[in-house]
Amino acid sequence: MTRQEIEKEIKNIFQREFEVENPGMDDNLREAYGFDSIDAIELLLEIEKLLGFELTQEEKKQAMDIRTINQICDYVEKIIRIKATSAGEK
């Protein structure tokens, strides 16, 4: 999945699940949209659906400091990279 595709999917999730239209890539989600810890948990479930595999507890905890759409995309890219590396090693 390219960075552009990830951005598109994340924005779709925000529109569909959180009723947030066209969020700025560097908007502070909490300050701008009231995005809270409950939303973060819901977002992780959506990311799992997007990726097609479960995130570990450790991976989920790493997401708790995320504040912007750009950071979410960074996070998803990183998870995909780790998964690919891990699959390659096997």
Partner: peptide, 8 residues
């Protein structure tokens, strides 16, 4: 009610 309230 807005979603931020509806969710709970």
């Amino acid at each position: 009610f807005k979603r931020q309230y509806r969710k709970t």
